[in-house]
Structures are given as structure tokens and as C-alpha cells.
């Protein structure tokens, strides 16, 4: 319930107007959105119980590892009700053709796969916020294993407690076993954005670039 309460309001995309090239505009709009979402995500992470008890080094390491995963849980969740479109924001639905034109065909495919998988699992909002926090916590510590394990255990216990009120056997395990797909999806998205930046010179905001480079 704490995670549900601290869930940030979704951001709207600000349409880029700096170019008449619609594919480039899509990409620039998306990168601006991601940069602002990252700011919100860092503020959100601080509110997850146990996160602030981690050392600064471990906080950085978890965010550098899990930020794209956490953001993609939201995209996949927002896209549950739509047909083929991915809802990067409420006002930024992108279909396969738009993603392909923007050089993000493989990102579309991967995130769509994740969306379909989550849809089949019929996630509840409680599960979504917990998965998001777990995506952030699901990393190796640089600094202090004990405090990271306490952080992870707290989330795990919350999920188990929630699932114990439901009837589906093995649900906790199934949710946890969906995390590798999420990581794989996030890796593809990070690689695609880095490629757009390095090979095609797409300008990327400082924070987003710093977080992408941490994964390069």
C-alpha cells in the first residue's frame, strides 16, 4: 500500500517541434520524456522503504542497473488495454510503423512481447508497483550486501503477503520469474538508444545520457 501511495502521476510527452522530420521528432519527444521520467523515478526510489538505508554507492548502482526496467514496467502496464500501440505516455502512443521509422523496431518488438506477457498474467496495480520496485532492487550490491538484502526481503515479503490473499498458487514465483524478460527488454531499449545517439547523432539530455552510459 505504501508503494501504491507513492506511485508518481504519469508524465505527458512534450511534442518536439525542432524538426519537420517526423521520425526524428518521435525520437526526440521520447528522449525528452525519458529524461523527465528519470528525474521522477529517482525521487520515487527514495520513497521505497529501505532504499534510503542503502549506501549512496549502492543507491546509484541500483538505479543505474534498474531504471529502464522500472520505466518499461510502466509502459507495458499502460499498454495493457491498447491493441498494437505502446503507450510511452498517455499522449504518446507509438505503433510498430512509427517505432520502425524512428529506428526502434527491435524496441517495439521487445516491449510489445513484455506487454503481451503481462497481459496474459493479468497483473493487478499492486503487483505492478511491487514488480517495479523489485526491478530496481534486483541487482548485486557494490557496497553492503546486508542492507540490500533487507531492502529486497522487505519487497519480497510484501509481495508474498499480498499474494497470500489471492488464490493463485505459485503466483509469487511466476512474477519473480518474469524479471529476466524485463531485464532483457530493458537491455534492448538501452542498446537501441545508445545506437541512435552514437551512430545517428541523436542528441540526448544529460541525465538520460549519463544513465545510458552507465549501462554501455
Amino acid at each position: 500500500s505504501h508503494l501504491l501511495l507513492t506511485e508518481p502521476a504519469p508524465l505527458a510527452a512534450n511534442q518536439d517541434n525542432s524538426t519537420s522530420d517526423s521520425s526524428l521528432r518521435t525520437l526526440l519527444t521520447l528522449c525528452d520524456l525519458l529524461n523527465r521520467e528519470l528525474l521522477v523515478l529517482i525521487g520515487w526510489a527514495k520513497q521505497i522503504p529501505g532504499f534510503s538505508e542503502l549506501s549512496l554507492v549502492d543507491q546509484m548502482s541500483l538505479l543505474q542497473s534498474g531504471w529502464m526496467e522500472a520505466l518499461l514496467v510502466d509502459v507495458a502496464w499502460r499498454s495493457q488495454a491498447t491493441g498494437e500501440e505502446l503507450m510511452f505516455a498517455g499522449n504518446l502512443p507509438l505503433d510498430e510503423a512509427q517505432c520502425r521509422a524512428a529506428g526502434l523496431a527491435d524496441v517495439y518488438e521487445a516491449v510489445r512481447h513484455l506487454t503481451v506477457r503481462y497481459r496474459a498474467m493479468k497483473l493487478s496495480p499492486d503487483e505492478v508497483v511491487t514488480l517495479k520496485a523489485m526491478a530496481l532492487a534486483n541487482s548485486d550490491p557494490v557496497d553492503c550486501l546486508d542492507s540490500l538484502q533487507r531492502f529486497q526481503d522487505g519487497l519480497h515479503e510484501a509481495l508474498q503477503e499480498y499474494e497470500s490473499t489471492r488464490r493463485e498458487q505459485n503466483r509469487t514465483g511466476r512474477l519473480l520469474m518474469s524479471l529476466p524478460l524485463l531485464r532483457q527488454t530493458a537491455d534492448r531499449a538501452v542498446q537501441a538508444l545508445l545506437r541512435m545517439h552514437h551512430q545517428h547523432g541523436i542528441p540526448i539530455h544529460k541525465l538520460l545520457l549519463e544513465m545510458l552510459n552507465a549501462k554501455a
Binding site: I42, K46, L56, L207, E210, M211, A214
Partner: peptide
Amino acid sequence: KEKHKILHQLLQNST
């Protein structure tokens, strides 16, 4: 750490 300057600063700022 210099490479991750912005994240470092954002985490150090109080909410």
C-alpha cells in the same frame, strides 16, 4: 564517480 555526477547530486538532495 565524476562520470555519474547528476545521479549523485540528485540522490544527495533531500526529497
